[in-house]
Amino acid sequence: MTDTASNTALVDIQSISFQYPSGKQALDDVSFQLQSGQFHALLGLNGAGKSTLFALISRLFRLQQGDILLNGQSLKVAPSKVLGSMGMVFQQSTLDLDLSVSENLHYHASLHGMSRSRRQERIDVELTRLDMNDARHKKVRALNGGHRRRVEIARALMHQPSLLLLDEATVGLDPATRQSINTHVRELCEERNVAVLWATHLIEEIHPRDKVALLHKSKLLAFDHAEAICQTAGQQSLVNAFSTLTGTEARS
C-alpha cells in the first residue's frame, strides 16, 4: 500500500476486521482513507469482503475491531452523525416497487428527518438533474433497471451526504447503462465534492486516475491510483495487475 494516511481524509477506515459467526473471516485488518471529491473504487472478486465492508460502514453490521471515522466522527461513538453524512446504493435494489418515485424519495428523506418543504425542494433538484421529472408519479415497478438505479442514486443524495457508497450498483445492467451510471456518479463527485466509494468486480469501470482499494480474500492488497498499482505490479493494464497481485483473473 503506497498511499499514506492524510489529515484531510474525509473517511478514515482504521484496521477493520470482521468475522462471521460461522467463523469465516470476511475482513482482516483493512485500513484506507477516502478524500472528498474523489472517485474511489473498491475492487475485488465476489466474496472478497466488499459487501461486508459496506455493511460495516453503513452500520448494518456492528464493528468488531477497528473504527471508521467520517469527518473525524467515530462510527462507534457518534453513529447518528456518521450515518447522516452518508448515502448508499445497495447491490440489490431497495426501492419499494409499489410506491412511486416521489413516494420512495419522500420516505427516505423523512427517515433523515427532513421537513416536507425541504424534501420537496430536494426531490425537484434531484429529479430535474436526472431528467426524470415526468416519472415522479410513476410506480418504481414501471421503471427499467437503469432508471431504478438512477432513482436509488438520487435517493442516496437526498440528504446531501459527503460520502456516497455504491455496492456493485451496475450489476445486471447492460453495458451502455453501466457506462452512463458510472459517468453520472463521476460528475456528482466533481460537482458536489462528494467522496465516492464504488465497489465493483468489473475493471472496465475503473479509470487510471481513480483511487483503487484492492480487496482479496478479506485483505487489502493495495490502495493507490490505478496507474500506480499497475506500475507496482509491473503491468500495463489493471486487469493484468489484478491477476498478478491476486493470482486470479478479474472480469473486464
Binding site: R59, Q92, S93
Partner: peptide
C-alpha cells in the same frame, strides 16, 4: 428485498425506528 436497510440506515436510533 433489501428495503429494510433503508430504514436501518437512518441516523435515528434503531429502537425508535
Amino acid at each position: 428485498m433489501g428495503s429494510m436497510r433503508v430504514l436501518l440506515m437512518s441516523p435515528l436510533p434503531r429502537w425508535y425506528l
